[in-house]
Amino acid sequence: MANSATLTTDSKQTWGGGKSPFSVSYGKLMMWIFLLSDAFTFSSLLVAYGFVRFTFTGSLPNTVVKPFAHLSHNFVEEMQKAGMFVTERWPSPELVFNHFPFLHGIHLPLMFVSLMTFILIFSSVTMVLAVEAGHRMAKKEVENYMILTIIGGAAFLGCQAWEWTNFITEGASLSSNPFGPTAFAALFFIVTGFHGTHVLSGVILNIVIYLNVVNGTYEKRGHYEMVEKVGLYWHFVDLVWVFVFTFFYLI
């Protein structure tokens, strides 16, 4: 608590200028402020989802398909006839996102998106390990962890592309949705799309940083703070996914 002691007892030294009162560099402070504004953007999108969802009748309890059951070819039509997929009723995400690659025709709710969640959490871990290696000025380790983070991000984007393709093939778009209210599909595409754009720009930033690490830019500069700043952004993307996962799939 030595820092906060300085903050209270000697405020002239803390706020007198010439150094950061927050004990972080300008760039890092601005990254935090940007992430705060981005958190507001995502919050408003998720709150909009909550609002729209609450204006619709809740989904019916599913008594038709059990997990691991085989799905028929005209599953969507059957659900429409059973009154599960109608425009007045919010569909249960369990019945909408139930596919897994190479396991076609089996009812596997939540499985694929859980895999995506694990991928993103793990890439967050490799990112923070890259930051930790940067503190020790271990160039080779930073390189390796950055590569793993980039692979994780790319894998996540690939999974999302697969998820979108499935949903679009079944007839969902910004203006149509065979599973229920149009707003369900529109919000899904906008929110996961906006998150996916963040992942994509995160991967691009990670690649840029990786190339700088390889070229020894930060070695010459004397610190790897750039890895930290991009790391903050990357963890934020993971953080947002926790809530997208909760609201779009779990609830």
Binding site: L7, V24, L29, G231, H235, L239
Partner: peptide
């Protein structure tokens, strides 16, 4: 957990 450890928040100054 993500914010406090991964984003280093719990080691930053209270003000931030």
């Amino acid at each position: 957990y993500i914010v406090s450890v991964f984003m280093h928040m719990k080691f930053e100054r209270k003000f931030l």
